[in-house]
Computed example of a mutant assay.
Amino acid sequence: MNRIRITMLCLLVVPALLFSQNVITPGGVWSDDKGEHIQAHGGGIIKLGKKYYWYGEARRADNDTSYRYVGCYESEDLVHWKSRGHALKLSDPEQLGQRWVLERPKVFYHKKNRTYVMYFHLDDARYKLARVGVAVSKTPQGPFKYLKSFRPLGLESRDIGQFIDDDGTPYLIFESRPTKGFYIAGLSDDYLDVVKEVCFIRSPLEGGAVVHYKGLYYAIGSALTGWNPNPNKYATAKTLAGPWSEFKDIAPPETNTYGSQSTMMLKVEGTKAVTVIFMADQWKPKTQWDSRYLWMPLQIGEGRLWLPEPQPWTLNIKTGEWKPAGDQRKVPF
């Protein structure tokens, strides 16, 4: 009987200990400081000083369907997140009708103007508008004020991503269906417009993400399969302008990227190591509020990139080092 009690106690204590050790569990329910499921789907992250801000689609089941919401969360360790409420609450801005779309919000900080600029995919229910929307705020948590929408470089734009290079230069990544590829584009001086085509990658991919690591640029994208996951792929280049290599799988293709779709690659630079985190969404189209997040450190370097089989892991935000968590059980997908 004592052995049974000890075993049960261990089952209760071990998960608590793992959480206290800053464990990230890919595919698990990720709760904020209020104990609520984080609502930052299709999101992006910026770092300001020691704080990280995570923005994404807030798809709570009880949302007022007259609005679209962008959630904002704040953290200093990328594990424990404080809810900062809705950075954006927006009613139909362009008379698009019911079921209009706001997806994949990304925020840039304009240091000179001390303003925060949010880009997002804006569309109608049939995905015919194909624009980006722009909103601004004086604080990272908002509220953001809607300014306008447009087609970047005059082109259709659906899934968008963001990339901020090591020198601070911001770029918008957007997929253009008619041209069968995606663009990396430079922003205007005030960040309120897209003014320069840096590169067109002729590959029909969405969910675009870019990172600069040890002298090479790595780009990741997802095939055009809607809500269904597929084998995400990557390519490399010495400059953003290319030329880019052929695309290769980032994980065993039969896993469909472990049921996920890319949204960003986040580089964590510490005193001892640099870790690149693959940020992805595991979409649940019928219960979108319960969609999960798959975050996992990438094996990256010398032109190669690989997503290991997801498992719980810990991150030392100061040193930049990561390691598998004490519990080696695999995460079910």
Rank of each mutant, 00 (worst) to 15 (best):
F19S: 12
I160F: 01
H86P: 02
V194C: 08
G320M: 05
L192E: 10
S245R: 11
E57Q: 08
P93G: 01
T65L: 12
R68W: 05
L17C: 13
G207R: 04
T236N: 09
P253M: 10
A237R: 03
D166E: 15
E76V: 14
L155H: 15
A125Y: 06
V211P: 02
K50L: 08
T257N: 07
P26K: 01
G168A: 12
T225E: 11
L18D: 15
E321W: 02
I300A: 01
E76S: 10
S75F: 01
T236Y: 05
K196M: 10
W295H: 05
K138V: 04
A235L: 11
H86K: 12
P26R: 02
Y258T: 05
I173S: 09
V23G: 10
R59Y: 08
C10E: 13
Q95P: 03
R114L: 06
P324V: 02
I160N: 02
Q95N: 15
Q95L: 11
L298T: 05
V23H: 06
G142R: 00
S262D: 12
L96F: 06
S188F: 10
K196F: 07
I220F: 13
V198K: 00
P297V: 06
A185F: 04
E74I: 00
T314R: 10
K318R: 15
D92M: 09
K318S: 14
I201W: 11
L48G: 04
N228V: 09
Y191C: 09
K323E: 06
D167F: 04
K89Q: 15
K286Q: 13
L102C: 07
G161H: 03
V70D: 13
L12N: 09
K323Q: 14
Y116P: 12
G259Q: 08
V194G: 12
V136N: 02
A251R: 07
L88S: 05
I317T: 14
Y218I: 03
I220G: 10
G326C: 08
K138W: 03
S245I: 06
M1Y: 13
A273F: 03
L307K: 03
G161A: 01
A87V: 01
A235D: 12
A61V: 14
Q141F: 00
L18E: 15
E197F: 07
A237I: 05
L9I: 14
E36T: 14
Y67W: 08
L224A: 09
Q311D: 00
D124L: 01
P310Q: 01
Y258V: 10
P204Q: 08
G142P: 05
A223F: 10
L78A: 02
I4S: 14
V274D: 11
K284M: 13
D92Q: 05
K34T: 13
V79E: 00
K180L: 13
T115Q: 15
L172Q: 06
K138Q: 12
F174W: 03
Q288T: 13
Y217W: 12
K89I: 10
Q98Y: 08
E156R: 12
Q311K: 14
R104Y: 02
F333Q: 09
L240K: 09
G186F: 09
Y55E: 15
N228P: 02
S157D: 02
Y69C: 12
Q282Y: 05
K318W: 11
G35K: 11
D92S: 06
D190L: 04
T271D: 09
